[in-house]
Amino acid sequence: MENKVPMLEIENLHASVGGNAIIKGINLVVNEGEVHAIMGPNGSGKSTLALVLAGHPAYEVTEGSVRYDGQDLLELAPEERARKGVFLAFQYPVEIRGITNAYFLRFALNAIRAEQGIEELDTIDFLDVLKEKLEIIGWDESMMNRPVNDGFSGGEKKRNEILQMAILEPRLAVLDETDSGLDIDALKTVAAAVNKLRKPDNATIVVTHYQRMLNYIEPDFVHVLADGRIVKSGGKDLALELEEKGYDWLAPEVAAV
């Protein structure tokens, strides 16, 4: 590949929560157009990495740097990161009563458009955008008049994350275990939606425990995280190898780090 444009540059990243070090020196570069999969056993720091990138206040970066489009990402507030195109599909999407899905999404989209200097959408124009995107995940409008994630099943919540991603059109999407809790049909729909949203100038980080999702979202790179560090990187075949052998065979490498 030529003329690679680096979008995200993570250098020697260390992060802790409540004084416990979770991430212990991650280095990773994600270029435009790439899909990276982050895999690893439970407790390896996968979700922490996703939350640190999004700016969750409970996580403290103790060392290292993260640059996003050449800018220091860590100094930006979570909403500023979002407005600049960083999107996190939550592992556990949050319920918000009192706000409809449609209202929430329109507000979010307009916040992002305002940042980009694009005219805000009124209710009617937004509805047009919404209709188009709803098709991608196979929903009708009735889901939009319900409060955000309130009373949604696990699968509906995950679909809702992808719908938000489709509408907000992020530059960098981080999918945190979006596959967990999905049956195979839902997984296919979600993966198809993610693939449809891939563009040469955006990038995706897929955080997952299982290889299953990577059958449908084909990664350019696979990284294995263990005890807060990337212990192995490779192409998509690495995921298959992990599926076959599990994570244990990497233990010596973990110990060697």
């Binding site: 999004a54 909403e79 999107f87 996190l88 918000i96 009192g98 999404l105 979010a108 907000l168």
Partner: peptide, 20 residues
């Protein structure tokens, strides 16, 4: 945090939720 991650400030999120 969820609202902020979607580009909405904490102030706007509270006012949205409370007004709703």
């Amino acid at each position: 945090f969820y609202a902020q991650q979607r580009g909405i400030t904490a102030e706007d999120a509270v006012s949205m939720i409370v007004n709703g």
